[in-house]
């Protein structure tokens, strides 16, 4: 059974207070990688391809990143850079940041060079979190793109007993985290993404290197955590899961 934790709630309250002022992108990937241990690095892809929401890579950016960092810094001892850090996924500087977050991967198209670079990044120890993509069509696109990166490694369901669900918080179920509009009531899914999944790609040693949050939107839960209309249970869950991802990525 899912439960709210007091320190999580307290952190979220603090986060909400801090978010009284509008956030904007501060880093743009030029942060000094030696300044802190951890940078919440958002992978930039498909530059130039925009829709009404702007570039697909930048959905929820930078608010989601910065709000997540507030909670991370408040709740854990991680020496985290306080602001966002967006870096193109084919930029060599990405190797300075072993944790990368990308979303809306229904629009992700990797060329061979990008796929090779991403594979090398992950083989060397980088950790990739994929979030906020819905339905069969987006899944098939992701499968196609990841097959370019790892033709020989399957995408598998991550079992609930996996350490990533217990690295900091004990997460015991997978919730479907809706976007800010659907969180207000009604169905929580988008398109045909009825069931949330946490899937992954493991290396030869059994270490999780790519974590895929399908049919769920952790980013919106971080971004709208200060919105009184956004259900606390989704925000809390998203923060817990996100913090677990970071602790796992820094220790496995």
């Amino acid at each position: 059974m899912w439960r709210l934790r007091p320190n999580t709630v307290a952190a979220l309250c603090a986060a909400l207070c801090a978010l009284a002022t509008p956030l904007r992108a501060l880093s743009n990937g030029d942060a000094d990688p030696t300044e802190h241990e951890f940078f919440f690095t958002r992978g930039i892809y498909g530059q130039g391809a925009e829709d009404d929401w702007g570039p697909r890579w930048a959905i929820d950016y930078p608010t989601a990143d910065q709000q997540f960092l507030i909670a991370l810094r408040r709740l854990t001892l991680v020496d985290a850079f306080a602001s966002d850090n967006a870096v193109p996924i084919d930029d060599p500087r990405l190797r300075d940041f072993p944790f990368t977050y990308i979303l809306e991967v229904g629009a992700l198209i990797l060329d061979d060079e990008q796929a090779r670079g991403l594979r090398e990044y992950l083989d060397k120890g980088g950790f990739l979190v994929i979030d906020d993509f819905w339905g069969t069509w987006a899944w098939r696109n992701l499968q196609t793109q990841l097959a370019k990166v790892f033709p020989d490694r399957p995408i598998v369901e991550v079992p609930m007993e996996h350490p990533i669900f217990h690295a900091f918080y004990d997460v015991r179920e997978i919730l479907q985290v809706p976007n800010v509009y659907q969180a207000r009531g009604g169905p929580t899914h988008e398109l045909d993404g009825y069931n949330p999944h946490v899937r992954g790609i493991f290396d030869e040693q059994g270490r999780l290197m790519v974590l895929i949050n399908w049919n769920t939107d952790l980013g919106d839960a971080w971004e709208w955590a200060d919105n009184p209309r956004y259900p606390l249970r989704f925000s809390t869950y998203a923060y817990e899961l996100g913090i677990n991802f970071v602790i796992y990525a820094m220790s496995h």
């Binding site: 241990e37 001892l77 991680v78 020496d79 072993p98 120890g125 040693q205 270490r207 820094m250 220790s251």
Partner: peptide, 17 residues
């Protein structure tokens, strides 16, 4: 380690096999 650090992960990786 008194705090989470990437060094933990990479030391583990280095000696994992």
């Amino acid at each position: 380690e008194g705090e989470p650090r990437f060094e933990v992960k990479f030391v583990r990786r280095a000696v994992s096999d």
